[in-house]
Design a protein around this nucleic acid. Structure first.
Lengths: 229, 229
DNA sequence: CCGTATTTGTCCGTATGTATG
DNA sequence: ACATACATACGGACAAATACG
């Protein structure tokens, strides 16, 4: 039985045509990342399947996919649980994230133009304004948008995907919530250093600046963790 | 019906107890990475389920997991296909791999001891010997083992996992096969530079050396690709 | 330690929609 | 337009492992 007839997936005619599995997976991922499903909590098969109005098949496929993404943990004959990231793992993740973010700075330096630079400066000013008004909420959103802009600017989809995966995993660390609040104008000084490095056209300098930015986040995280311990 | 009763997955009593899904997934992954299933080739549901002697359920779960790992591509209502990595994507992956490998060098510098350094030197000598005898096969295996040793030496599981994922994806690029053959004693000079950097205790230098090593592989890959185009 | 209930893992049959020739 | 093949999803079923009293 030759399985040869090498059909090649034709890229054209790309209609969305979402699969149930994918929809449920997105839904679960959203529940996990927003904290509606907390780390360690169980994903009850029949409970969830009835809640979503689907059968167990697609649900199991979705959870297996989430397992591969590192968002849940499957224990044979026990069930599926939201993965909980220990502080130690979080430190590991911070390092990998720093390396990838450093690469982003390096790649950006070679791609950046005046339009992007002015947008980056606009981000800096907006964040300064938010910090001056002690607008934590606004600063948080601007900070996220700024980082997304930088990551997207590299035009490297692999990098963006990997970076998002790591950031998501960090959300699964309970102690993490404390860190995101801290920083503010402290980290905006680092942001300015990053932008200046990119503008200077010096690849290595930009890479180091981006790398250090995440490492400092890691240090802030570590200090809060060790304080608790 | 409160879903509160927060069962926490107890870490103890960790028996293997493989699930069918996991076994099939490993089997398929092996078939893909060894080239038995080539990029673009289709994974026929009923065909594979009968071949493995299982039902379609676990098989579908396995393929969704492989999709999340980036090894296969699922096209709704069409089927599952082995993902084919374009040369452009391969270049992206090389950059991310370089960043992560650079981090490995940095982390190794802070962890390395005399035992590890002597093992690294042993690797260098063995690879020199293999290169002198034009023993491509032996050099290839030693090279893999050397890189594994370095990655494992960082004691960072997130890094190791991410690195392996990227290397696996590179195998899905057809043009890639040409590159792995090239190098030999050329790259062993780079290896020596890496080990020396780690031994020097200079984090930044080691990180840069490890980063450059992968970037040079990328350059070799790019030149072979552009030659074909 | 035992017996029962619950849940997972797996299989099967089947209906429906979609792609392909 | 038709027929075939196939992926998708559903529902039922049962064994095995686990959890609980």
């Amino acid at each position: 039985m030759a399985l040869s007839s090498a059909d090649r997936p034709s890229d054209q005619s790309s209609r969305p045509a979402r699969l149930l599995t994918g929809s449920v997976e997105d839904e679960l991922e959203h529940l996990i990342l927003t904290g509606a499903l907390r780390p360690g909590e169980r994903l009850h098969e029949i409970q969830l399947s009835t809640r979503f109005g689907i059968s167990r098949g697609p649900l199991r496929e979705a959870t297996r996919s989430l397992q591969a993404k590192g968002l849940v943990e499957v224990i044979p004959n026990r069930g599926v649980f939201v993965r909980s990231v220990t502080p130690g793992e979080a430190l590991e993740i911070y390092d990998v994230r720093a390396a990838i973010f450093g690469l982003a700075g390096r790649l950006l330096t070679d791609l950046v133009n005046d339009t992007m630079l002015s947008r980056m400066h606009a981000f800096l000013e907006d964040m300064d304004a938010a910090a001056a008004k002690n607008d934590f909420e606004g600063y948080y959103r601007l900070n996220l948008a700024f980082h997304d802009f930088l990551i997207l600017g590299t035009r490297n989809k692999t990098l963006a995907e990997e970076y998002n995966t790591l950031v998501n995993k960090l959300h699964l660390c309970r102690a993490q919530s404390l860190v995101t609040a801290g920083g503010l104008s402290v980290s905006n000084h680092e942001h300015r250093e990053m932008v200046d490095s990119v503008a200077s056209g010096n690849r290595e300098r930009a890479q180091a600046a981006f790398f250090r930015h995440v490492e400092r986040s890691k240090d802030r995280f570590r200090s809060t963790v060790t304080d608790l311990a």
